[in-house]
Every structure is written in structure tokens, then in C-alpha cells.
Design a protein around this nucleic acid. Structure first.
Lengths: 238, 238
DNA sequence: TATAAATCCTAACGTAACGTGAGAGTCAAC
DNA sequence: GTTGACTCTCACGTTACGTTAGGATTTATA
């Protein structure tokens, strides 16, 4: 895989891949005569590791040390990362509780101490560093679809065409619902998708005229139709 | 409160407080003759807002704009932040699922495609920027990647045209449903959108005459068609 | 009350992790 | 056989601070 493919698959920028190459964090397995970077499946697995650690707040320097460590073992790393993500999740839940309490106190329903207002914000140190150190030592320890995006583009195009064709059927009909389902599944494949985010999209469409204008370019009533479809869809999800 | 107290309470460094003062993001209410910064309770509330937005990936520049916006309202901001944290939580859950599946595949129990290995890692743009913009104003249009946005714009245009073409078909027909799915996936690529957001979009289309009129320009019934198809699709997702 | 800690200040350079062109080579397609 | 999409290597720019350096101020203690 060349840089652009990797970038689109993983969501990191090409510059980031170059950077990781420069600092020796992720060297592509192959380089062509012309200097083109070619990434292998192993490279992708390493990149996944890198992104997990990065998400957890490790510096690139530290990640490099970890990956180069002779004791490093992928499954153990993944298990550690899972634990850390679980911690992060509970931290998020604390922050959520803090927000709810803050809203109440803004409304005058409750009172909060200053300490309470900052629960969940303690990022002073990396709490996972200790555990990583224990496992892999101190400092210095130290296929796929050819063109994912184009394929998806084609599938999406077919679906939108079908939707336009089908717009006079019952929205609840088997045909319509099957198409919608297919669409949703594709969306899910492409990236993560939550109901809450979807709802936010609807709101944005309402609030942002640029969207309205763009949609209207393609035909009257399309925006309304889409809003309606999304509304119903969301309703039935609960 | 003096800097050290604030720092210990909130977990940010003193240097960070200095920095926020320098760039005008958080000016202490009082300064002594000797130049000592004295932070009020209001300052702390602002700092809480800043930290929430920062945690959600906003730049300090953008946070400053948001807080200075005349439309800015604390409770609404907190509610938005709660939604965003919920999204972040579901993203975390996706990453957890990805880790578990990766562990299984490392053990040879399962196989995973490359795309699967990067679920939950899509940080291309700030998915909340759009919503914040809708609520508290623009000013960040040029913030996302140029290339990405233009590309997306084109793709979106093609899809809307297709939808307009198909608007005489049944909304439940395969073609219509596939078109909607493709659209949804694109939306997903642009920022993440949830089912709930999608539903909200549909509702907006119905409720806001400007949208209805705009969509109707491209053909009567398109909005309804899409709403229905999406609704049905959503229902069947459960 | 003197003096040593502790805490504060400004100023300015350093750092991490990329972003952003500039200029040029490469490769597939028409 | 020339676009056009993709790639490369510099190399400077940016964000959000970290990190001394040198000095003023406030607080604790002798």
C-alpha cells in the first residue's frame, strides 16, 4: 500500500506517515527505486499499535521505545491498551457526571464545590506509564481492498440513485427499508456512527444554510425528504 | 485564588495559566500591585469550560472565539459538551471492540480486514466543530483540510444530483435505499453522525420551511421520500 | 525582626508533533 | 506524449505549552 491508501484507511495524514518514517517509528517495509513508501500488513499492525498508544497519551518517543523493546508482545500490549481504554471510559463517565452536576448548579438547583467542578480533569501524569514500564522495561528497552474509498464511493452512488428512484414508495416498504439498511451498514463500515452524532447532523442542516443551498441545487424538496427520512429513521431506532 | 491553588485544583500547570492569560483566553479578575494573578470563582467556571472544550479537541483560538461570542450561553455549552462526551464514549467503545477483535485475530481465532483494525480511529476532522459553528457562529470555515473538504463537496454534489434524479422511485426500493445509504456514509466520513442526529435532520427538514422550500425546488416529495426511507431503515436497525 | 523558604513575576528560548507550501520526480491513462 | 493524480524531499511555520534564568514578593520560622 502506498501512502495515500494508508492515510485514507487509517485516518492519519500523509505527513504523519512521513514523520513517523523520519523519526524511525514506522519504517515502510518496502521502498521503490523512486523512493515511494510501500506499507505491508505488518506495518499496518504496527500503526494500529502506535495509534492506540498515542490515543492513550504516550509520546512518540516512548512508543518507539515500547515497540522496539525485545520483551514487547503484541497481545499483552493489546490487553494493556484495553485496560487503559476502560480507565479512560470511566474517566469520561466522571466528566459526564461533573457536567450534569454543573448544569444543575448553573440552574441554581444545586451547589458545587470548586473541587467537584474539576473532577475527571486530572491529566497531570500518564497513569499508564507505570504499568507499561513494569511490562516492557525502563527507558530504551529499548489484505485489503484495492481502493477502499472508490469502492465505497460507487456503492454510495448506487444507493443514492436507488433512493431517488424509490422516493414514491412507502418509506416503510421492504424495498425502502432494505435500501436504508444497506446504506446504514455501509456508513457503519466507513467509520463509526452514533445516533447522537446523527441527530447533531440534522440540527446542523437546520442551522447551516450552506447545507440547505447545496442540497437544493439538486432538486426541490430533497432537503425536506432527507430530513424526514432521517427523522423517521432515528425515531424507530429507539 | 493564586496560580498555584488553581493549578492544584484543576490539574493544569502554572505555565498553562500564564499562557491562557497571555493569549487572552483566561484573564484573572484581579491582579495585585505586585502583578500576582488572582482568580475568581467566575474565572474557575470559565476554566472549566475551556478544559471541556480542550478535551474535545478544540483549539485555544476557537475556544476563545466561542467564549467571547455574544450568543454563548453556559448551559447550552454544557449540554453540547455532554453530547460530545457521549459520542466520545461510544467511540471508545468501538475502539474497545476493535481491540478485543484484534486480540482474537492475533491468537488466530478470527480474521480481520484492515479496515476493521482501524475502527474508532478516525480523527480526520473535529466532528463537533460543525455543531458548535451552528450554535455559536462561523469563523472556522477554513479550518478543516482544504483538499478533503473540496473532495467531499464534489462527492456530495454528485449524490444530491442522483437523489434528485431518483425521486420518482419508491423510497423503499433498493435503488433509493442504496442512494440514501451512500449519502449517509459520506456524511459519516465528513464528521461523525449518529442515527439520532440523522433523525434530527429529518425533523428539521419538516419543521423549517426554508429547508422544505429548498428541497422542493428539486422535486416534490423528495423530502418525504427520504425521511420515510430513513425512518424505516432506522427502525429496522434495532 | 531578620532571614530563609516558598511562591510569584516576566522574558525568552526549547520542544513535540505535525501543517503547509515549494519545487521536482513518477506513474497510469487517455 | 502529455495531462493529472500521486509521490518525493527540503524547510520553514504553528500550536500549546515546557523549561530554565533572573529577580521580586509574600509567608514561615528563628
Amino acid at each position: 500500500m502506498k501512502v495515500k491508501e494508508v492515510a485514507e484507511l487509517t485516518g492519519v495524514s500523509i505527513r504523519t506517515l512521513h514523520h513517523y518514517d523520519d523519526i524511525g517509528l514506522l519504517r515502510p517495509d518496502h521502498v521503490t527505486e523512486a523512493g515511494y513508501r510501500l506499507y505491508s500488513n505488518e506495518n499496518l499492525a504496527d500503526l494500529q499499535q502506535i495509534l492506540f498508544f498515542r490515543e492513550l497519551g504516550f509520546s512518540l518517543k516512548r512508543i518507539k521505545e515500547l515497540l522496539l523493546s525485545p520483551e514487547f508482545e503484541r497481545v499483552a500490549a493489546l490487553e494493556l491498551q484495553r485496560d487503559m481504554l476502560l480507565d479512560k471510559k470511566s474517566q469520561l463517565e466522571i466528566m459526564l457526571a461533573t457536567i450534569d452536576r454543573t448544569i444543575q448548579s448553573e440552574r441554581g438547583e444545586t451547589k458545587m464545590t470548586n473541587e467537584e467542578k474539576f473532577k475527571g480533569f486530572d491529566f497531570r501524569t500518564n497513569p499508564y506509564e507505570e504499568e507499561a514500564k513494569a511490562r516492557w522495561g525502563e527507558k530504551a528497552v529499548g489484505q485489503t481492498k484495492h481502493n477502499f474509498n472508490e469502492e465505497m464511493q460507487e456503492k454510495m452512488n448506487r444507493i443514492y440513485f436507488k433512493l431517488a428512484e424509490l422516493r414514491h414508495l412507502e418509506p416503510g416498504s421492504n424495498e425502502a427499508q432494505e435500501a436504508i439498511e444497506k446504506w446504514f451498514m455501509l456508513l457503519n463500515q466507513m467509520g463509526s456512527y452514533s445516533l447522537a452524532a446523527f441527530k447533531g447532523l440534522g440540527e446542523m442542516y437546520v442551522a447551516d444554510e450552506r447545507f440547505t443551498q447545496n442540497i437544493d441545487q439538486f432538486g426541490e424538496g430533497l432537503a425536506v425528504f432527507m430530513r424526514d427520512a432521517m427523522s423517521i429513521y432515528s425515531d424507530r431506532q429507539v
